[in-house]
Structure formats: structure tokens, C-alpha cells
């Protein structure tokens, strides 16, 4: 996170991580398509080969909230990493300084092992950077729910309830579950940063106000609560 008091700006970095072809880039495209125009910049897809990410994709977003007659800008840069195993150096570079992670898993049964390997890779990378994954806001997305031969709902729900991280189900190609998942991470990341830096008083921006403005920019006017409740654990319990 970067704080710029003079400009009344906060910059946050969120990263979509996961195995190759799990749908990280597709998530970002779906997000771009759904965010209000005045809140988004151009989606930058850096150097791809056969549609596989080589370096990263990045989508700049800005959420504005007016407090005491001044506008506070929360700039959120959303990155994807390249999932292919060979690009591990690049993944580490993109991961540096992340304020939150969406782990995009591929729901297909056959991808179970790749999901696990990629997650171990994520953990190892954080460890290398001297951070613990336990301290990083994280949400998990099971993508490609529209396919057959996928992990069953009941199985995922059950596992989700046992874990500590919110789990979302999505079909990024159809745009389903994408916003919910993104908002889920945004909320976790914001609350964690607020706890650490007391943004409510240093910036004069209460969490609830920020989340409400962000939800509005994501097309959920006045319904941030509904978005917050979209993870498996919340609706299941």
C-alpha cells in the first residue's frame, strides 16, 4: 500500500494468482467489463504468447469517496501473474508488495494437483520474501463452474467451511461470481490495512463508507452488504 496524504490518495495492490489456464486473465477482463467507466483505466495485457500471460495483466481502478468536501481517491491496481510453472521469477516480481491475493483455482477434477502445486508455490514465494501467507488477505475462487467433471459443490462447501479463507465459485467466461470474489478480497484487504494503518482516522475514511462507494462503482448501489455475503462460508452457515 502507498499512502499519499497530500493528494488524499491510497494505492492498493491486489494480485490474482493460480495455476496456468485457471482463468486469471479472464477474471480481469470480466471485472473490467463490469466496473463503472469512470472508475476504471485501460486493461493492460503485457506481452502474451498464444493467450498465455508472460509477464502480467493489470487493471487500474479508482474508487472515490467525498469526505468533508474533499475527494479521497482509493486507487486499486489489480494484477494477474503468469500461471505457467516456468515463469516463477516473474510471479515473484509481481507478487512483491501485494496487499491481497485472489487464488483462482480451476474447478476441474483433473486440475486438483495443479491447484495444489500452485498454492504451494505461492506460499513458498511469500516465505522467500519474508512474509507469511497467513498475514496476507486471501480469498479463493473455484473458477469454471460451468464445466462438467468439476469438483462437486458439496465437497467445496464442506472444505470451505473447514478452512479460514472465504471461498467463491465463479464462471469467469460468463462473468458469474467475478465481482463478488473481487469485492470479497477488496473488503478483506481494506479491513486489514485499516487495522494496520488506522485509515479511518489518518485518512478520515471510514471502512463502511469506502466499501459502499466501491460497491456502487461495481454496480451494487447501496448493497455492499449483499456483496459481502457472497462467499461460500457466509451463505452456507
Amino acid at each position: 500500500m502507498q499512502l499519499n496524504f497530500a493528494a488524499r490518495e491510497v494505492a492498493i495492490k491486489l494480485v490474482y494468482y493460480g495455476p496456468a489456464l485457471s482463468g486469471k486473465t479472464t477474471n480481469l477482463k470480466a471485472l473490467h467489463a463490469r466496473v463503472a467507466e469512470e472508475s476504471r483505466g485501460r486493461l493492460m495485457t503485457l506481452d502474451t504468447k498464444d493467450d498465455r500471460t508472460l509477464f502480467f495483466d493489470v487493471l487500474p481502478l479508482v474508487f472515490r469517496a467525498d469526505v468533508d468536501g474533499a475527494t479521497i481517491r482509493v486507487r486499486v491496481k489489480v494484477f494477474t501473474v503468469p500461471g505457467q510453472v516456468v515463469h516463477s521469477s516473474t510471479r515473484r516480481l509481481v507478487l512483491q508488495g501485494a496487499d491481497g491475493i485472489v487464488f483462482v483455482a480451476d474447478s476441474q477434477v483433473s486440475e486438483t494437483e495443479n491447484n495444489a502445486a500452485s498454492f504451494l508455490d505461492l506460499r513458498a514465494n511469500f516465505k522467500d520474501m519474508g512474509r507469511s501467507l497467513a498475514q496476507v488477505p486471501l480469498v479463493i475462487q473455484f473458477n469454471k463452474r460451468d464445466l462438467v467433471k468439476i469438483r462437486r459443490d458439496a465437497e467445496i462447501d464442506d472444505l470451505a467451511r473447514r478452512g479460514t479463507d472465504p471461498v467463491y465459485k465463479a464462471s469467469a467466461t460468463r462473468g458469474e461470481g467475478v465481482i463478488e470474489c473481487f469485492f470479497g478480497l477488496l473488503e478483506r484487504a481494506w479491513r486489514s490495512l485499516d487495522k494496520e494503518h488506522d485509515l479511518a482516522s489518518t485518512l478520515g475514511l471510514p471502512s463502511d463508507l469506502f466499501l459502499e462507494r466501491a460497491a456502487a462503482s461495481l454496480g451494487y448501489d447501496e448493497t455492499a452488504r449483499a456483496l459481502s455475503a457472497a462467499s461460500v462460508r457466509c451463505c452456507g452457515s
Binding site: 503485457l46 509477464f55 516463477s88 521469477s89 515473484r92 516480481l93
Partner: peptide, 24 residues
């Protein structure tokens, strides 16, 4: 501006990826 910045980021990533691979 977008394209120029993109090219700039690309070359920067090239450089740092190579460095990072070398370091590993």
C-alpha cells in the same frame, strides 16, 4: 501514453525477470 508505458513496463519486466532468474 498507454502504449508507451506498456512498452516501458515490458522492457522493465524483461530486465527484472532475467535478473530474478539469474538470482535464483
Amino acid at each position: 501514453i498507454f502504449s508507451s508505458h506498456k512498452a516501458y513496463l515490458t522492457s522493465k519486466m524483461h530486465l527484472y525477470s532475467v535478473r530474478e532468474s539469474y538470482r535464483t
